[in-house]
Amino acid sequence: MYSDEHKRFLKKEKWYCLSVIFVQIFILIFLLALWQVAANFGWINTFITSSPKMVVETTLHLVKENNLFYHIGVTIYETIISFSLGTLLGLLIASIMWWNPFVRKVIDPYLTVLNSLPKVALGPIIIVWCGAQMKSIILMALLISVIVMTMSVIESFEGVDENKVKLMQVLGAKKMQIFFKLILPSSYKPIISALKIGVSMSLIGVIMGEFLVSKAGVGYLIMYGSQVFNLNLVVSGIMILAILSWMMYSLVYTIEKRLTR
């Protein structure tokens, strides 16, 4: 079916992909092995650096004794809630801003300040207002994700070709029709793509919140570990978090691919 040249080309491409994956795995294994060897030979102090073996043991211990999956569940739950609320609110605020240019102009400096302000600084206030409970954590994450969502959605709304808006007006469209027939469908892809940022931002917010106040969650495990100087626990928490965030991102990425095919 294909020419020999094309077959050679496909083979080359396949080898290229495989070698990328191979090197990626190799680096991971090499670093872990180096870490373990350094720990075994006493090159590093495992009390402050931990070691792969200790991380695995601590993780297994967490599963058995401390209900690891409960902590992961809490973190995921908080992330999902703040992510969905942030997405919906972001869409709503951006829509209002698009709808009313006056509101958009007025709100603009406030949004810029809020966007550049490190939201963790608001943590103490949030704790005082909402108490040391899950509500505070969700609010924290919500604050971060909602601003990012609003900014990217309004940007895509305003990026719609002006000529197309003019066309809609000339055809006699009302503002509502312009929004639902042109603006929203045109922004479909950028919005889906903003969700990827949204989910990462929510997770950042949740972990920040869990650092400040919490009785459960992966962020709580890391914080607790550092307070009792159990670095094994801290490193295990970070590893779990890395896997968790990678999984959430991949999930949204897969959904994006599916939806924008």
């Binding site: 000529n163 055809l171 027939k181 042109l182 469908p185 045109s186």
Partner: peptide, 19 residues
């Protein structure tokens, strides 16, 4: 100014839909 998320027929029907 064709909308790339609408088919050709849907694009042609835009004005009728709006009105």
């Amino acid at each position: 100014c064709l909308f790339d998320f609408r088919t050709i027929l849907e694009n042609c029907l835009l004005g009728l839909e709006i009105n």
